[in-house]
Amino acid sequence: MSDLAKAKLWIALFVLVILAPVLALFWGPHPEGREFWRELSAAYGFAGLALIGIQFIPTARLPFLAQLFPMDTLYAFHHKISIAGFTLALAHPLLLFAGNPYTLRLLNLATAPWRARAAVIAVILFILIIITSVWRKDLRIRYENWRAVHDLFSIAAAGLVLYHMFMVNHYMAHPFQRVYWSTSAVVWALAVIYIRVVRPIQLLQRPYRVVSVQAERGEAWTLSLEPDGHPGCHFMAGQFAWLVARTSPFSFRDNPFSFSSSAENKNRIEFTIKELGDFTATVKELQAGERVYVDGCYGTFDIDQHDAPGYVMIAGGIGSVPILSILRTMRDRKDNRPVIFFYGNPDWEQVTFRKDLDSLTSQMDLKVVHVLEQPPDNWRGETGFITAEILDKHLGVDRANWHYFICGPIPMISAVEKALLQLDIPLVKIHTENYEMA
């Protein structure tokens, strides 16, 4: 079965799993019918938890999903679906209160039954989860602390909601609902156990050693690693991995970085990391011989899965890292298909891989179009941002048959994607990776 067919099957399964508990509500025998708002409230409750519960899956880095769907899409999906799920779940009590204001007494934690207390606490936890996730940086919460709290609150809230549902026991009395929600709880728990226990154990068995840390232009550092006592990971050019350094794989301090080395070099892997604060600032302090862990490989941002007569790479700043990996791999494979690389940077001094790109142009069919926001005085190249005009000027007549890979911050990806659509590039030929996913 092709990857596309598998992806479609997973999407169909997702829709089915989400709709199942709501569709099953139609399935009798039923308790006696109640007023409209109360029934609508119950249905929203089921719909909300179905969406919220499934959130344990996309972030568990399950290999069979990561192989089919880009990880940043899985995360974007997680963010959007969680908010949608919470909104539906919140509509459940709100409709209940609106339909029958007497039910407001359930909010009084001192006198309310435990099934109501559990729901109220779960809603408070969900609100805290959303606030700390959406505004983590504004609230200055450290990434690893946020991850720990996010995990703990999510598990607690899911448990409390399940307790609430089983204790209310209205539509939950139906055997389908009991089996569905019990099975769901087991699946959610397995996803958490996989990412928090199984995966770290696997990483401990496959350590890497730091070979060197080399400074690059644009406040970036290239970290070279060699597998320690195992064959290493065979990544595809353009993929990324989560890096764990100076801590245990069981900690919450792992960070995703793209490989910058050639996928043909099996014995040594390299990451190029821009210094942005938090973990990235410690990369330069790593010493040769130090032990690190690499959770990978992930991502579908690679040319092997998207055969084309030629490629267009578009990067903003450090988004060039996976593209360098693709270019170096093509060079090592003596792949002579033409590549045009549009590379946007603030200024000439900060262009990471400037020299590497110069030498790559002589080793393969590569044309690099530098686009600078603040060009030096004698600059003859492109200036400003990567726009439809700049793309149009450099792309050939066969442009609709080529594949396009864009990596950079989200606003840059959106702008370039729009520009490509303006130039009649088919949507299916555009591949994106944003580096601010989690």
Partner: peptide, 30 residues
């Protein structure tokens, strides 16, 4: 590209959920 697909899937899924929930509530309350 993937974001557009993800957004469409979200709209369809949530739309169906809202629709079925509404239908259910009508059927049960009449």
């Amino acid at each position: 590209m993937q974001d557009i697909y993800a957004r469409n899937l979200l709209i369809i899924t949530v739309g169906l959920l809202l629709l079925f929930a509404f239908l259910f509530a009508i059927l049960r309350s009449i």
